[in-house]
Amino acid sequence: MMGHIDDPCAHCEEMMQPYLDHILNEEEKLEAEAHLSECDWCRRRYRFEESLRVYVRQVVTEPMPAELKLKLAALRLPLE
């Protein structure tokens, strides 16, 4: 905490991924939130990261080809 006293935004950036992954401890989480509540610059960037994650998940998801599903079912072992 002390090492970043000069640049709270840099510290906030370091906490972004762990914050969004919910792995900060309570103290760090409050620290990040306190900074975000007063810093529009960082808040925008957190918000962007959050929507980017959701967006990436959405757009890369491709439906499984129907033929593949049939091929998988055909791989089942015959009943003895």
Binding site: R44, R47, F48, S51, L52, Y55, V56, V59, V60
Partner: peptide, 18 residues
């Protein structure tokens, strides 16, 4: 609007970047 910034990225951009 931060939620719209991501929409500048196309599906192709993302799949190929990944």
């Amino acid at each position: 609007d931060e939620d719209r910034v991501v929409e500048r990225l196309s599906q192709d951009d993302i799949v190929s970047a990944l």
